[in-house]
C-alpha cells in the first residue's frame, strides 16, 4: 500500500520517466510476494477455506512456485479473478502468473500473447443434469435451458456442439460458479455445463450430490494449465519447470516425505533425482534460482500425485479419478521433459 501510494505520488509529480520494465523474477523477488491469479472460488481447485486460507489444486501450483522462487510457500498474494478479469490482470502485470483452470487454446496463446507453461489438468467440457430428468445423453438436450459460465471456452464449445448436432438450447450466461449453483439447484436451468472437473467440484458442494448426474459426453478438449505473459521467457521457464518438477517427482517417486532425505546427499544410483534436487549439476542456477529450488517446491505439498489426491482425488469429496491425468507410466498423458 505504502509503495503504491508513493508510486502514485511520483506519477502525479510526473517524475517517473522511462522506467525500464525489469524482469518478472526480479519484480517478484523485490516485492517478496508472488501475485497469483486464481478463480473466485471453485472448491478443490481454488477456494478460501473457513479461515480465509486459499486451498486447492491450482493454489498448490502457486505455492510451489512461490516456494521455489522466494523460499516461502506462504508468500503468495492470491488475486481472485473472474473469466472477464483474468487475462487483463495478467497482461497488465497485476498478477505474475495465472493458475485458474484456463484452457490452452491457439488464440489465447497467439492472439492474446500469453505463454502456457504446460498442462496441469487434462479436462473436457461436460454436462450435469438433475437425475430426475432422466437424460442419458447430451444429444437429448434439445430445447433445454443451459447455464454456462461466460468468458470461458465452454461458451463457444457449447454453441458449436448444439449447432453441429442441429439442436436448440437456451443459454443462461452466468459470471461465476457461485452464482450458477443456486440457479441450477432451483431449476432455473436444466443443465449446467463447464469443465468436467468443475462439474465434479460443484456437484461435491451440493447437499445431495447423488441427485445429479454428469452426462457421459465430453464435448471438447480442455487442457488446463498455468500461464504467464509473452516475452518474459526466464519467468516462463521458472513456472514451467516448477510444474515439470512436480510431475517428474511423481514419476521418480520423490514425495514430500522423502524429499528432504533424498536432497541431503547425492545418490549415484538416481542421477535424475540428483539433478532435480540440486545435489548434482547446476539446473537451479540456470533458472536464476539456487540449487534447492525444486526441493522447496516439492516440500510444500508434495509431488503432482500428492497434490491431486489431497485436493481433488478420489479420497476427497470431489472424487476425481486420475484418468488422463495419470503419469504416462500409468497410461495417462502427464509427461515431463527430462531434467538434464
Amino acid at each position: 500500500m505504502k509503495k503504491s501510494v508513493f508510486i502514485g505520488a511520483l506519477a502525479l509529480a510526473g517524475v517517473s520517466g522511462g522506467m525500464a520494465a525489469a524482469g518478472t523474477l526480479d519484480d517478484v523477488k523485490a516485492r517478496g510476494t508472488l501475485n497469483c491469479g486464481v478463480s473466485t472460488g471453485l472448491v478443490g481447485f481454488a477456494a478460501p477455506d473457513a479461515n480465509g486460507e486459499w486451498q486447492g489444486f491450482d493454489v498448490a501450483v502457486c505455492r510451489a512456485v512461490a516456494a521455489a522462487v522466494l523460499g516461502d510457500a506462504s508468500a503468495v498474494e492470491f488475486v481472485p479473478t473472474t473469466g472477464k478479469t483474468r487475462f487483463t490482470a495478467l497482461a497488465s502485470g497485476e498478477i505474475d502468473m495465472l493458475a485458474r483452470n484456463t484452457t490452452w487454446t491457439f488464440s489465447r496463446d497467439v492472439d492474446l500473447k500469453f505463454e502456457f507453461v504446460g498442462v496441469n489438468y487434462y479436462d473436457g467440457q461436460g454436462f450435469m443434469v438433475p437425475a430426475e430428468l432422466g437424460v442419458s445423453s447430451a444429444k437429448d438436450l434439445d430445447g433445454a435451458t443451459v447455464c454456462i459460465q461466460t468468458g470461458t471456452t465452454t461458451e463457444l464449445n457449447l454453441a458449436d456442439f448444439f449447432r453441429a448436432n442441429g439442436i436448440s438450447y437456451e443459454p443462461v450466461p452466468i459470471e461465476t460458479n457461485a452464482e450458477a449453483q443456486p440457479l441450477y439447484l432451483e431449476g432455473a436451468c436444466d443443465v449446467y455445463t463447464t469443465d468436467a472437473s468443475g462439474l465434479a467440484a460443484t456437484r461435491a458442494a451440493f447437499e445431495d450430490p447423488s441427485a445429479h448426474v454428469v452426462l457421459p459426453e465430453i464435448i471438447s478438449k480442455e487442457p488446463l494449465g498455468p500461464l504467464v505473459r509473452h516475452g518474459d521467457n526466464e519467468w516462463g521457464d521458472i513456472v514451467r519447470w516448477t510444474l515439470n518438477a512436480l510431475i517428474t517427482a511423481e514419476e521418480l517417486g520423490v514425495t514430500s516425505d522423502n524429499v528432504a532425505d533424498k536432497a541431503a546427499a547425492a545418490d549415484p544410483a538416481t542421477p535424475e533425482i540428483n539433478r532435480l534436487l540440486g545435489t548434482e549439476g547446476t539446473l537451479g542456477e540456470m533458472l536464476g534460482l539456487d540449487a534447492q529450488w525444486a526441493v522447496r517446491a516439492l516440500s510444500v505439498s508434495g509431488n503432482y500425485a500428492e497434490i491431486f489426491e489431497d485436493n481433488i482425488g478420489e479420497s476427497t469429496a470431489i472424487g476425481l479419478a486420475r484418468g488422463l491425468n495419470a503419469s504416462y507410466t500409468d497410461g495417462g498423458l502427464l509427461y515431463s521433459p527430462p531434467f538434464r
Partner: peptide
Amino acid sequence: ANVVLAYFFPPGSSIDLIL
C-alpha cells in the same frame, strides 16, 4: 478500473484494485 486502468499506469507499477 478493473480491466483498462492498469494499462495507463507506468510499466512495472502495480496499483491494487481497491485503489
